[in-house]
């Protein structure tokens, strides 16, 4: 019996020693895991963006772009997010939608800007998308739903049906419930750090979930993010009792100008 115990412990010790020894090596760097996945992400992001940019006209109006840039940059600066890596694009599309693509593309539809009543509502949605970007949810969702091999073959010009599926998946922002919750709360934290009131973000979700019954195709961001009322409630609960400084970024006239320019 003693012999068996001794042999058992020696076997476990050998296993543990090999594992411990091997885990001291930085395999991620040795196998260049990050570089390989970054390259795939870059290719995919550029590929998807090209398709989206063909489907809708991009808004290049200097003033509009400058205002949106300044809002996103403010959120990034307050949260130590490298804003230089983010590629912001505003597309002329009536859908109330914003989404992220691989390789740090942030796409905002004019319909979203039109339907938000203030900068805080807009930044709540933008913060939510930035959270998906920062936490690596975009590639995770694509790999889970479509598969890495299909994605790689897509960038090489194959899989027409899979491309369609991927585009729908990306713009619908249909992430897992847990990922959505994580992105919501992270967005609220981003807003608090950036001294933006997060309450309008919850109000925006309440408002659109009511409108959804009448405007199913327009309220896209909300209709593809289920349980919006429940989400608005947990945002309200999260900020309840918290004190934070609110500092407006845009003047009333700047906000009005942005909405006017997007309308035109």
């Amino acid at each position: 019996m003693n012999k068996i115990l001794l042999q058992f412990f020696i076997t476990v010790a050998v296993f543990a020693t090999i594992y411990f020894g091997l885990s001291q090596i930085d395999w991620i760097a040795v196998l260049k895991v990050k570089e390989a996945s970054k390259k795939t992400e870059e290719k995919l992001g550029d590929f998807f963006w090209e398709l989206f940019s063909k489907a809708d006209e991009e808004i290049h109006d200097e003033k509009t772009v400058a205002i949106i840039d300044s809002l996103v940059n403010h959120l990034c600066e307050a949260n130590s997010i490298d804003q230089t890596k983010i590629k912001i694009h505003i597309l002329k599309n009536g859908e109330v939608n914003a989404f992220t693509l691989p390789n740090n593309y942030l796409v905002i539809y004019s319909g979203l800007i039109k339907s938000t009543e203030n900068e805080a509502e807009l930044l709540g949605v933008v913060g939510h998308e930035l959270a998906h970007m920062e936490k690596g949810h975009v590639m995770k969702k694509l790999i889970k739903e479509i598969g890495l091999s299909a994605l790689i073959s897509m960038t090489a010009g194959g899989g027409g049906q899979t491309v369609k599926e991927a585009l729908k998946l990306l713009s619908s922002s249909a992430y897992d419930r847990d990922l959505e919750r994580e992105a919501d709360i992270t967005s609220v934290e981003y807003m608090i750090r950036a001294r933006i009131d997060p309450e309008p973000f919850a109000n925006f979700m309440y408002r659109l979930s009511d409108k959804e019954k009448n405007l199913p195709s327009q309220a896209y961001w909300i209709s593809t993010h289920p349980d919006s009322k429940e989400r608005a409630e947990y945002i309200i609960n999260y900020i309840k009792g918290k004190t934070f400084i609110k500092k407006p970024l845009l003047t009333e006239s700047q906000w009005k100008e942005l909405k006017e320019r997007v309308k035109n």
């Binding site: 594992y19 091997l22 090596i25 196998l31 690596g136």
Partner: peptide, 13 residues
């Protein structure tokens, strides 16, 4: 399928 990331510990295992 979840938020777990590929790590050096995973590769070592």
């Amino acid at each position: 399928f979840s938020n777990e990331q590929i790590s050096s510990k995973y590769i070592a295992y």
